[in-house]
């Protein structure tokens, strides 16, 4: 089953074609890597899929809902986490989760049960009453992820979730992603770490607003006859006419 469908999805700002007729599908439970150079159009595409920006042309469906006509339904069944997305530093761990549960309309009893369930799964029960400001960055990121999937979304969008964290925490984070996908939540993720592209089931690479490649990392490496995803990226992004520089 496809949980994301994009058909000729396009966004222009004046003369500028930020996203240029992209078409793709993402399957349920898939880890989908959304790669591209800065300025290639990733954020614009992601904002359209999250129901935050209207396409100029084309259509999109997320979890069965139309991203234009049913954008509020889309928002209710997705989770979103960005690199710099801050939890509330001056709230405790459980208070942050409580807030997210409330925003997504969960009931109190449900929220309290969920907080314990989530913290136990993370092995984080002991920090329930810790102020978020006192947590190390790696833990803040795990907690931000937990908040993003607190309401059991169908899809979670992660925008550079691992920027700046240490190598061990970066890997622990990906294990959390694997675990989430295992439980049927689809993961749509952007990253600038090319080793992380290898952890995805499939990746797309955007160049100048288009999707110039979409396949499993293995198939892409074979197609471009290189040994790693970084080389694939260099070959594709190097052809960009729209230079960010």
């Amino acid at each position: 089953m496809n949980v994301i469908i994009a058909k000729n999805l396009t966004k222009t700002f004046g003369d500028f074609m930020a996203v240029d007729h992209i078409s793709f599908e993402v399957k349920k439970g898939e880890i989908f890597g959304f790669l591209g150079a800065n300025g290639a159009g990733k954020t614009t595409a992601m904002r359209m899929l999250c129901g935050l920006s209207k396409p100029t042309f084309g259509m999109g469906q997320v979890a069965g809902f139309d991203i234009v006509k049913q954008s509020e339904n889309v928002k209710a069944c997705i989770g979103y986490m960005s690199q710099r997305f801050a939890l509330y530093e001056d709230l405790k761990v459980w208070e942050n989760l409580r807030l997210y549960g409330g925003i997504y309309g969960l009931r109190n009893a449900q929220i309290n049960r969920k907080i314990d369930e989530m913290l136990n799964r993370l092995g984080f029960q002991a920090e329930k009453n810790t102020m978020v400001s006192a947590l190390p960055l790696g833990w803040k990121q795990k907690l931000a992820f937990t908040a993003a999937i607190f309401h059991d979304p169908k899809i979670v969008f992660l925008d550079e979730p691992t920027g700046g964290v240490d190598p061990a925490a970066r890997r622990q984070f990906w294990e959390l992603i694997y675990d989430t996908a295992d439980r049927g939540i689809t993961v749509f993720v952007t990253t600038h770490y090319m080793d992380e592209a290898e952890y995805c089931n499939r990746v797309s690479i955007m160049v100048d607003g288009r999707i110039d490649a979409l396949d499993s990392p293995k198939a892409l490496k074979e197609k471009f006859q290189v040994s790693n995803m970084e080389e694939v990226f260099f070959q594709l992004a190097g052809k960009a006419k729209r230079k960010d520089s």
């Binding site: 591209g36 150079a37 800065n38 690199q83 550079e160 920027g163 700046g164 600038h192 090319m194 970084e230 990226f233 260099f234 992004a237 190097g238 960010d244 520089s245």
Partner: peptide
């Protein structure tokens, strides 16, 4: 180079 794509980092 934080938050910068691999190609711009190389440059």
């Amino acid at each position: 180079t934080t938050g910068v794509d691999p190609l711009s980092r190389k440059e």
